[in-house]
């Protein structure tokens, strides 16, 4: 199956902003983290289809998964 992966902030460095990724059926969020070597301590926010998600969430074909390092502002 295919999912869209978006990266924010420092996670883009040496990687990409947005990319389509092929995954095995029943893959989870953590499989994308491993596939793209995202340092776990740098993934503070993860969203699947604009909903906050856990690393263990099972993905569906055509999902959009976004990762952000710790951020803050106001």
């Amino acid at each position: 199956m295919e999912v869209k992966v978006k990266l924010f902030g420092d996670l883009r460095e040496g990687r990409f902003k947005e990319e389509k990724t092929q995954l095995e059926e029943n893959s989870c969020v953590i499989d994308i983290i491993n596939k793209h070597n995202l340092p776990l301590e740098k993934v503070a926010i993860c969203m699947v289809n604009s909903h906050v998600a856990e690393f263990g969430q099972v993905l569906q074909n055509q999902d959009t998964v976004a990762f952000s390092p710790p951020v803050g502002g106001m």
Binding site: K6, F8, G9, D10, A44, I45, M47, S50, V52, A66, S68, P69, P70, V71, G72, G73, M74
Partner: peptide, 24 residues
């Protein structure tokens, strides 16, 4: 702290645009 030690110095507060956009 990762937010005050790293994220805010580098991108400023505007780092929130993409996050809030993604969250709808």
């Amino acid at each position: 702290h990762p937010v005050s030690g790293n994220a805010l110095p580098k991108y400023g507060t505007n780092v929130l645009i993409n996050i809030l956009n993604e969250a709808g």
